[in-house]
Design a binder for these strands. Structure first.
Length: 602
DNA sequence: CTAGGGTTAG
C-alpha cells in the first residue's frame, strides 16, 4: 500500500477551492483514498452537505475500498432527505450499513423514512443491535408514535436486545408525549436503572405538573441507596418549587448539601426560587446572600420572590443594589420590579421605574410591562389611569393586559367597566375557566342573577368547567390535599367538625361570611354553607388539629384565595394565634394578628 | 442510542 504518513503537509481547509486543490494534489500522489485523507476531505464536505453532497458522493463512489465508516460523519450532518439518498448510494455500491449507520440517520428521520429504515434494519438483522433499535424507538417517539415505538419495544424484549437505554428512551419519550402514566408503567418494570432513567421519570412528572409523584420517585431512588447527581438535584428542587411544600424543599436542599453534589449557579438559583415559592423568603435570602457569584437570573428570582410576597420595599432595595453592583437588568427584572411595586401599592415608584425603563435601564417595554402598569394602577383603584395605559400602548393589548384591568374591576367593584372588559376577555380566551368565574362573581355581587346564569350557560355550552379548588398542607412531613367539598379525607368528620368550630369561634370575634363570591341566587343564610367547604378552610382546620400551637400553617392552593376565605383566615390568625402562609395562584399571603401581607388587594 | 435545572404582568 501507499503512504504510511500523510505526505502533503495538512494545509488548513477553509474554502471549497482549497479543498479541490488539496484533493487534486492527493490524487496525483495516489493518496486520495488513504483513510486519513479521505476522512478529512469528507469531514470538510459534511460541514455543508447541501452544497457538497454530490462532491462527497463522487468521492465515495470512486473510492476503491469504501468502508461503511466513511459514510457516518456525513450521515450525521445530513438532513434526512439527503441521508436517505446517501444510504441508497451506500447500498448500491453495494456496501452494508454498519453499527453507526442507523443511530446516525434515525434521530432526525420523519415518520415514513423511519418506517423504511425499520424495515431495512429488520432485513439486515440490526434489530439485534441495541443502539440501532434504540435509535428506532427514539425516532418513533420523536414522531409522536408511541404505538409504533411500544410495538417495536415489546417485540424486541424476547430477543434480549433491550438495554437500559432502550427502557430509558421509552420512559423519556412517553413523558415528552404527555403519557406519563404509561411511562411510569415502563419505569416500574425496568430490570435495571441508571441515573438517567431516574431523572427521566422524575423530570417527566415535573413537566406534567405531577410534583408529588416526582418526589415519590425521588424518595424511592434514595431509599434504594442510589447516589444522585446534579441532574437529579435540579429536577427534585424544581419538583419542590412546583409542589410548594417547604418540608420537601428543606429535605431536598439538605440532601443536596450532604450528598456533595456540586451546586453551580443554576442549581443555586433553582434553590433560591424554591424557597421563595415555598413561602420562605428568609431562607431564600440566606442562600442568595451566601452565593459568591450571582447571575442575572439569580437576581431576578430574588427580586421576584420579594414581589410575590408583597415585600415591595425589599425588592426595590435589592434592585438598587443590583444596579450599584453593575449588573444590567433585563426585561424580566423590570417585570419583577413593577410587580413588586404593584403588589405593595407603590404606585409612584412603579411609575418612576416604568418612565425610565428605556434610557436608564436599557429595556424596551413589552406587553408584560404594560400589563404590570395596568395592574399597578388598577390595583390601586386608579382605573382611569389603567385605562389610559391601555389606550396609549403601542401594541394591541393582549388578554393578559385586559385581564389585569378586569381583575382591578373585580377588586374595586366596578361592575360596568368590568362587565364590558369581562365579556371581551372571555371571547379572547374562551377556555380559561377562571375568567368566567370572575365575571360571574362580579355580576353576582351586583345581584344580576340572570346574567350570572348566562355566564354559567356559556361555560356549559363551551364545555368549560370550573376548576375544583384544591389546597395542600404539610403536617409532620406528610402532605394532605383537600378538595373543595370533598369528603375523601380519612379524618373528614373530624376535619369538618373542626372547621365548623373554627368558624363559630371567629364568628364570635366579629367575622361575618362574605357571600359575594357565591354563585347562587339563594337566601342569605343558605350561602354560608358552601363557603365552609372551601378547600382552604378545610386545610386550615386540619392544620389547627394536627400542628402544635404556635406552628406556622403553610398552605398551597391551585386557585386564587376567595374573599371569604381571605377574611376568615385573617380572623383565624388572630383568634388562634397562628401565622398562616398561603400560596395561591398568583402570590403569597402571610396572615398574622388578623392582618394579611397583601393589604387586602390580590 | 437515554436526562437538564433558574426568572416574567393577570
Amino acid at each position: 500500500m501507499t503512504a504510511t504518513a500523510p505526505t502533503p503537509t495538512p494545509i488548513p481547509l477553509t474554502t471549497i477551492a482549497e479543498l479541490r486543490q488539496h484533493h487534486s494534489q492527493l490524487v496525483r500522489l495516489g493518496l486520495a483514498s488513504h483513510p486519513t485523507h479521505a476522512r478529512r476531505l469528507l469531514a470538510f464536505l459534511a460541514r455543508d452537505p447541501a452544497a457538497h453532497l454530490p462532491y462527497a458522493a463522487r468521492l465515495l463512489a470512486h473510492h476503491p475500498d469504501p468502508h461503511p465508516a466513511l459514510f457516518n460523519p456525513l450521515f450525521a450532518a445530513l438532513p434526512p432527505c439527503h441521508a436517505a439518498r446517501l444510504l441508497a448510494l451506500m447500498l448500491s455500491l453495494p456496501l452494508p450499513p454498519d453499527h453507526f449507520t442507523f443511530p446516525r440517520i434515525l434521530p432526525a428521520a420523519p415518520l415514513p423514512l423511519a418506517a423504511q429504515l425499520h424495515a431495512l434494519l429488520l432485513k439486515l438483522g440490526f434489530h439485534y443491535h441495541a443502539q440501532s433499535l434504540n435509535a428506532l424507538l427514539a425516532a418513533y417517539l420523536a414522531n409522536a408514535r408511541p404505538d409504533l415505538a411500544s410495538r417495536a419495544f415489546r417485540t424486541a424484549a424476547p430477543r434480549g436486545t433491550l438495554d437500559v437505554v432502550s427502557w430509558t428512551t421509552m420512559v423519556g419519550g412517553l413523558c415528552k408525549l404527555g403519557l406519563v402514566d404509561e411511562a411510569r408503567e415502563v419505569f416500574d418494570e425496568m430490570p435495571e436503572r441508571n441515573l438517567i432513567s431516574w431523572n427521566a421519570m422524575i423530570s417527566g412528572y415535573v413537566k406534567a405538573g405531577r410534583f408529588l409523584d416526582a418526589l415519590d420517585v425521588f424518595d424511592e431512588m434514595r431509599a434504594l441507596g442510589v447516589q444522585g447527581n446534579g441532574f437529579i438535584a435540579a429536577s427534585a428542587v424544581v419538583a419542590c418549587t412546583g409542589a410548594g411544600t417547604l418540608a420537601h424543599g428543606w429535605e431536598v436542599h439538605r440532601w443536596v448539601e450532604q450528598s456533595g453534589i456540586k451546586v453551580d449557579e443554576k442549581l443555586a438559583t433553582a434553590v433560591v426560587d424554591m424557597y421563595c415559592k415555598c413561602g420562605c423568603v428568609e431562607e431564600a435570602w440566606r442562600v442568595f446572600e451566601a452565593l459568591p457569584v450571582k447571575g442575572l437570573t439569580t437576581w431576578n428570582c430574588m427580586i421576584g420572590g420579594f414581589a410575590v410576597h408583597g415585600r415591595g420595599r425589599d425588592a426595590v432595595r435589592l434592585f438598587g443594589r443590583m444596579e450599584r453592583e453593575g449588573v444590567a437588568p433585563d426585561d424580566v427584572t423590570l417585570v419583577n420590579v413593577l410587580t413588586a411595586c404593584s403588589h405593595a401599592g407603590m404606585v409612584s415608584e412603579g411609575r418612576h421605574y416604568f418612565n425610565h425603563i428605556v434610557e436608564r435601564y436599557g429595556v424596551e417595554p413589552k406587553m408584560e410591562h404594560y400589563g404590570c402598569m395596568v395592574d399597578l394602577y388598577g390595583r390601586a383603584g386608579m382605573l382611569d389611569e389603567a385605562q389610559k395605559v391601555i389606550d396609549n400602548m403601542p401594541m394591541e393589548p393582549d388578554v393578559g393586559v385586559l385581564g389585569a384591568l378586569f381583575g382591578a374591576c373585580r377588586i374595586h367593584g366596578d361592575v360596568d367597566l368590568g362587565e364590558a372588559i369581562g365579556w371581551r376577555v372571555i371571547e379572547l380566551d374562551p377556555q380559561n375557566s377562571g375568567r368566567y368565574v370572575l365575571l360571574a362573581n362580579l355580576l353576582a355581587s351586583a345581584g344580576r342573577w340572570e346574567d350570572v346564569a348566562r355566564v354559567r350557560q356559556l361555560m356549559d355550552e363551551r364545555n368549560v368547567s370550573k376548576e375544583a379548588g384544591r389546597s395542600v398542607i404539610e403536617v409532620d412531613g406528610e402532605v394532605c390535599e383537600f378538595q373543595c367539598g370533598s369528603l375523601h379525607h380519612p379524618q373528614a368528620a373530624e376535619v369538618y367538625a373542626m372547621a365548623r368550630d373554627m368558624m363559630s369561634r371567629i364568628g364570635a370575634e366579629g367575622y361575618a361570611p362574605d357571600t359575594r363570591d357565591v354563585l347562587h341566587d339563594v337566601a342569605e343564610e343558605e350561602k354560608d354553607a358552601p363557603l365552609l367547604y372551601h378547600s382552604e378552610k378545610l386545610a386550615i382546620a386540619f392544620g389547627l388539629l394536627r400542628t402544635r400551637p404556635g406552628d406556622t400553617i403553610r398552605i398551597t392552593k391551585n386557585l386564587r384565595v376567595c374573599r371569604d376565605c381571605h377574611e376568615a383566615t385573617k380572623f383565624v390568625s388572630r383568634v388562634f394565634e397562628r401565622e398562616i402562609v398561603v400560596r395561591d395562584r398568583n402570590r403569597f399571603h402571610h396572615f398574622k394578628d388578623g392582618k394579611c401581607s397583601c393589604n387586602d388587594y390580590w
